[in-house]
Write a protein that binds this DNA or RNA. Structure first.
Lengths: 334, 334
DNA sequence: GTGAAAGCGCTAACAG
DNA sequence: CTGTTAGCGCTTTCAC
């Protein structure tokens, strides 16, 4: 690894001149510039970005905290973040927390130690440890997908979860379903509560109510959707439709329903949330709510950029639009 | 952000003492240590890791190059890398190349500019640009999943792709299938060639051959699997079984087969490769080859670690074992 | 147009 | 046991 000093020796100029020749060529006399360029080429010099970053006090890295990269919805959000980050000269430090608070806090700490210039949290916790909380205010921070709290002092990028669930509820009602069951996520999650409120909005408006036993919790995984559906199918009567709060649980639920010998959507309709790519390839294809995952990621990164550069933030709280995707897993009930 | 100098002033000691008190407490007198700790606490000091890294000449970051994080197989590999990296004190810089050579080269360059201490390439190209190739030898580099070339000077972690495809071929033959079709990936890919060779091994051993028109290329995406299956179904006769070189294309193929009103596995068997989580939830569940994705990632990171620390590498070429997972999408042919 | 020198925050070698 | 100093590689004043 050759340094700027070696290049300067080779070219017979000072390090400052080498630096200028590379950064601001017009500040340097043409022939000096050429000597420098020749020396750069000869020595295979590549400016040490780590030194540059240190000297500038910025790492040009951003930590993305995610419970699980292997989740297809999150990985799409991350792609969006990455795309936007690239155009701005930032790289993504992957903070796959695997659900562990310690790992999450360790990654969050990178924002305090200049290893990262900012953080994007896709999970539902404020990621700083108790000790670090007091200092966290200095770290550019954006919350996306999930919502940590309602009176956030940082930007939040989310979906209109309540509206989306309401739209799905209305659609299922339109299909003629009256007895709707819901597979939820963790009860502590604000977006789970939003979605529950949305489906209740729709039912209430139709003079119906969501029965307590028709609300079964899952953990957003396929096995949990399978188990939740099994539980629903063991109840005294069959629900008309099952609305799952993500596509993976819906896919698990579909497997459980079929395993019981029931038909989708003839015997029971199933709907999901997210519109992951697999939702278009289940049998029948899954009716779901499309989340603009990449756009969420891009907007989160854009907000973080503004924060990191102390630029104004037109909309600290962004609510992105959903789209109801009607497919074969839901059908008019006779 | 307070610096070590502020802490030293506050504690009335030198910066070196602060550094020692934090790194090697036993080198410092107990009462000095306490003064330092109190000052650290009071000032909310967090050592600047960027400065530490710069000074040590290491970034403790590793770039992972991947064509697409949203691919569930790759994201599992990345999880494995991340797990291993964490235990070793390294963080992952996500190099989602989105198939672009320029982005790939830009990420690879980070290995030359001290932004990353090493690279793991999950794709099939040698990632350095022409200019950078001459310097690339100095950058710790590991190739996993795909194989860039056969006489690599860097560690390679891969599956026994040929053996896996052979095992799948033998299994399909055991099921009584004779006319086997294959949905491949890009023809340039060495692992695609390995898998093709494996299935041919099995057929040749049984005195059969793989007909040219039964080999249809895909690009590892679900739509391409759908299209490939459509193409196969339009041929004069129906194959007995379709072996797809990944699960996503198999899932696409299943959709195409069902769309034609054919039954799986009664009319045609389908098999995949990878064993992504969704493979267990298709209808019928997909017979496939299980790849130990996380283990591949962990091994790749372990090899990279050895390289980065100039430690001996017991096995520069690691071939990990597969497992044939028999599920409902394949069945004995009557 | 170019060079000398300081400084980013930390660690480590050397004194004392 | 602790302080002083140099240095990691680069950028950026400030002079000339």
């Amino acid at each position: 690894m050759s340094t700027i000093r070696m290049v300067s020796k080779l070219a017979g100029v000072s390090t400052a001149t080498v630096s200028r020749a590379l950064k601001d060529p017009q500040l340097v006399a043409p022939e000096t510039r050429e000597k420098v360029m020749a020396a750069v080429k000869e020595s295979g010099y590549r400016p040490n970005q780590l030194a540059k970053n240190f000297s500038s006090g910025r790492s040009y890295n951003v930590v993305v905290l995610v419970p699980n990269v292997a989740n297809p919805f999150f990985s799409r959000v991350i792609r969006g973040i990455e795309q936007e980050a690239q155009t701005k000269g930032y790289a993504i430090l992957l903070g796959d927390t695997q659900g562990s608070v310690e790992r999450e806090q360790a990654y969050a700490r990178m924002g305090l130690t200049s290893q990262a210039d900012g953080l994007i949290q896709l999970d539902r916790r404020f990621p700083f440890s108790g000790d670090d909380k007091a200092l966290a205010a200095a770290v550019p921070f954006v919350n996306a997908c999930e919502r940590i709290c309602n009176d956030a002092s940082y930007p939040v990028v989310e979906l209109d979860n309540r509206g989306a669930a309401r739209a799905m509820g209305q659609y299922l009602l339109q299909c003629g379903h009256q007895d709707i069951a819901v597979i939820t996520g963790p009860a502590e999650s604000p977006i789970v509560r939003d979605r529950l409120a949305g489906i209740q909005d729709a039912l209430l408006a139709a003079g119906l109510e969501l029965k307590a036993e028709r609300i079964v919790p899952g953990d957003f995984s396929m096995p949990s959707g399978f188990a939740a559906a099994q539980q629903l199918l063991q109840q005294a009567s069959l629900p008309d439709a099952i609305f799952s709060m993500n596509d993976e649980m819906a896919i698990g639920a579909m497997a459980a329903i079929k395993a019981q010998g029931l038909r989708i959507p003839e015997d029971i309709s199933v709907a999901g949330f997210d519109n992951i790519e697999f939702a278009g390839y289940t049998d029948p294809a899954l009716t779901t709510i499309d989340q603009p995952a990449e756009a969420i990621g891009r907007q989160a990164m854009r907000a973080l950029y503004q924060l990191m550069h102390q630029l104004p933030l037109p909309q600290p709280h962004l609510v992105l639009p959903f789209e109801l995707v009607k497919r074969g897993s839901t059908r008019a009930k006779n």
